[in-house]
Simulated assay, not measured.
Amino acid sequence: MELLLVRHGRPHRQHAADGDGADPHLTPQGRAEADLLADYLADHPATAPTVVYSSPMRRARQTAEAITSRLVVPLRVDDRLREFDHGAPSYVPLELTAPGQTQAELWRALETGVWGRHTFDPDAFARRIDAVFDEIIATNRSTTVAVVCHGGVLNSFLGGVLARPRGMFFQPEYTSVCRVVASGRGRRLLTLNETTHLQLGRAAEPDAVRDRRHA
């Protein structure tokens, strides 16, 4: 079977005062990114997923809903796909830094269990991610499945596929796709951080729209 691993679209930067903590909604740009991915998958039916799994966190679920609405395939929300920042007071994207913490320190979160002011059990997180992907693979043989999740989830699972030491090793772009082939003989990474759908979408935009979106 083939796994399409998708990072969610661009979310709002939320703080404790906003009330949503580390569970923000997508921005308008994030929704547009999710729609571009959904259109791209629909235009390539031979490799499109027949089912979509999603983290329950808003930024992932809203991205997944864009895909399932366009493809008309089932959506299965699994709590085990939630990010390690679940319950944190604010959302800190991988590409930014948390107050009082350097980028290098943030990127050791899968080893240390420290993400800004939020702490988690990195061993329990790794076991949870391994378990959910083992189940997804075992349940969906000989088909293509999309899993919409988060940067930490992707680094944890793909680090295992590549037999890397635990830790962050790449920064997935918003709505990027990583492809993995899984079978009884093992798992193999095919592509990392695909953003073809975003490039095609931007190329098709009128100049005025593109300039306004990046202003």
Rank of each mutant, 00 (worst) to 15 (best):
P99S: 04
H86C: 04
E111K: 12
E105S: 00
E111T: 14
E111I: 15
V114Y: 01
G100Y: 01
S90E: 14
A104D: 12
A104Q: 03
L106E: 10
R108V: 10
T97A: 08
R82C: 03
R108N: 09
R108S: 15
V92R: 09
H86E: 14
G113P: 11
W107M: 10
L110S: 13
E83Y: 01
L96G: 07
G113Y: 03
P99K: 09
G113S: 00
A88I: 06
L94K: 03
P93M: 09
R80D: 02
L94R: 03
L106M: 14
D85M: 07
A88Y: 01
V114H: 09
R80S: 08
P99E: 02
D79T: 13
P89W: 12
G87N: 11
D85N: 14
D79C: 03
E83Q: 02
Q101Y: 09
L96R: 13
T112V: 11
L110K: 11
E111Y: 01
L96P: 03
L106K: 10
R80K: 12
V114E: 09
A88W: 04
G87M: 06
A98D: 11
W107P: 01
L96C: 02
G87W: 14
D79H: 11
L81K: 00
R80A: 15
A98C: 05
Q101H: 15
A88D: 13
E95G: 06
L81I: 06
R82F: 09
G113V: 03
G113R: 01
A109D: 09
W107N: 07
A98S: 15
L106N: 08
T112L: 14
W107A: 00
S90W: 05
F84I: 12
L96W: 09
F84K: 07
D79W: 01
G100N: 05
P99W: 00
A88S: 12
G100M: 08
E95W: 03
W107I: 04
G87F: 01
A98L: 05
A98V: 03
V114P: 09
L106P: 08
G113N: 00
A98G: 08
G113L: 02
V92A: 07
G113A: 02
L81T: 02
R82T: 15
T97I: 00
H86F: 12
W107Q: 05
L81D: 02
F84T: 15
E95F: 02
E111S: 07
Q101T: 11
E111H: 14
S90Y: 07
L81H: 05
P99H: 07
A109M: 10
S90H: 14
G87T: 05
R80V: 05
Q101P: 13
Q103L: 12
R108I: 06
D79L: 09
T112P: 15
V92Y: 07
D85V: 06
L81F: 10
A98K: 05
G87Q: 08
G100I: 11
L110Y: 06
A104F: 00
A109R: 11
A88Q: 10
T102H: 04
A104W: 02
T97L: 00
T102P: 06
E111W: 04
T102N: 00
Q103E: 13
Y91H: 13
G87K: 11
E95K: 06
D79Y: 13
T97D: 06
S90G: 06
G113I: 08
L110T: 10
R80H: 03
D79M: 12
G100K: 15
E95T: 05
E111R: 15
W107L: 06
F84P: 00
P93F: 02
G87I: 08
E95P: 00
E105W: 03
L94F: 05
